[in-house]
């Protein structure tokens, strides 16, 4: 009884606090009708997304149906499918194929490079070491991507750091052999497809590490123990448990690396052999020639390729665990 007297008496305070003021009443209404609140919150971004993003994209693709007059260099509004058909001309198809192969190679190599880093971050690193790794992965993104691309042209140049380093390791013959390969090589690293591939991989790697890291972090340690307990060697545990369960992360990361490589037009201009990329082709058609309809037709290519890529990834079950 004595202990109770120290508490304030609760008997006099009212059970309900009556609403007062307009804001309170609005808050009460929204509390009782959560769907209304949701609609209010979603309306601005949906409007933005619908008008600025979807509508302008459709307008762009519609322009691909216009006719470009080669003599007058003017666009007239006669509708034609010729622009889209010309995507399959050998010269244009080469560009598509070159870009696609690069995007696939960059995605695959990024995944291989990223996995051990992501695995270490997710399962071993903790505290300061983990913070350091997050910082180290993100830090390159603080610099402008164009600056990084330019920096790489110097690093990969004939007298650049990378060739000097290769020479120091005594691997110059190996590099020369690589550069002599058709389709991969070139005069120097900075004018070879290999160099372009290295720069792409460098630039997009963080986009691969972080999703894989997130997917591995969700993996309960007891699953790995269970696998080992049931007789699986570490390699089999990796093959049958870790890898399948990290596929969503790899898929998410590869969507980034794949689409970013497909659409890029800066790196192909700065590093690598002269052949055009999808992005640079759009740039040339639109900027230099003024053939807007053809440029618009080219923008359809990455959209279609990414759609195909997503459906393949989905079929592989990458989104089952979402």
């Amino acid at each position: 009884m004595t202990s109770r007297s120290s508490l304030p008496a609760a008997d006099n305070s009212p059970v309900f606090t009556p609403p007062s003021g307009l804001l309170y009443r609005a808050a009460d209404r929204l509390y009782r009708r959560p769907n209304l609140l949701l609609a209010l919150l979603l309306l601005p971004p949906l409007l933005w997304f619908g008008s600025v993003y979807i509508a302008s994209l459709l307008a762009l693709l519609w322009q691909g149906l216009y006719t470009f007059d080669d003599f007058t260099m003017l666009v007239n509004h006669t509708l034609t499918l010729e622009n889209y058909a010309r995507l399959f001309d050998p010269a244009n198809f080469d560009i598509i194929l070159r870009t696609l192969l690069m995007a696939l190679a960059v995605s695959a190599f990024s995944a291989i490079l990223a996995f051990p880093v992501a695995y270490y971050m997710a399962r071993y690193a903790s505290g300061r070491i983990k913070a350091f790794f997050y910082l180290a992965v993100m830090l390159p993104m603080w610099t402008s991507y164009i600056v990084k691309a330019y920096a790489w042209t110097l690093l990969l140049a004939q007298e650049g750091v990378s060739q000097w380093f290769v020479h120091l390791l005594g691997l110059t013959p190996l590099l020369d052999a690589l550069l002599a390969l058709p389709g991969v090589g070139g005069n120097t690293l900075s004018t070879s497809s290999l160099g372009r591939f290295l720069v792409f991989t460098y630039i997009w790697l963080p986009f691969m590490i972080l999703p894989i890291q997130a997917s591995l972090e969700r993996l309960p340690p007891s699953l790995l123990q269970a696998s080992s307990d049931l007789g699986a060697t570490p390699f089999k545990t990796f093959r049958h448990v870790i890898l399948p369960l990290s596929v969503p992360g790899i898929a998410a990361g590869s969507i980034f690396t794949f689409s970013l490589t497909l659409g890029d037009y800066i790196v192909p201009q700065l590093v690598g052999p002269p052949g055009l990329f999808l992005g640079s082709m759009v740039y040339v058609q639109q900027g230099s020639i003024g053939n807007m309809p053809m440029a618009a037709a080219f923008t359809l290519v990455p959209i279609v390729l990414i759609a195909i890529y997503l459906s393949i990834v989905k079929r592989m079950g990458a989104f089952d665990a979402l």
Binding site: P220, S222, L223, Q225, A226, S227, V241, P244, L245, G317, D320, A321
Partner: peptide
């Protein structure tokens, strides 16, 4: 295991 640790995939 306490949490059963069944393979979800």
């Amino acid at each position: 295991f306490q949490d059963y640790a069944l393979f979800p995939h």
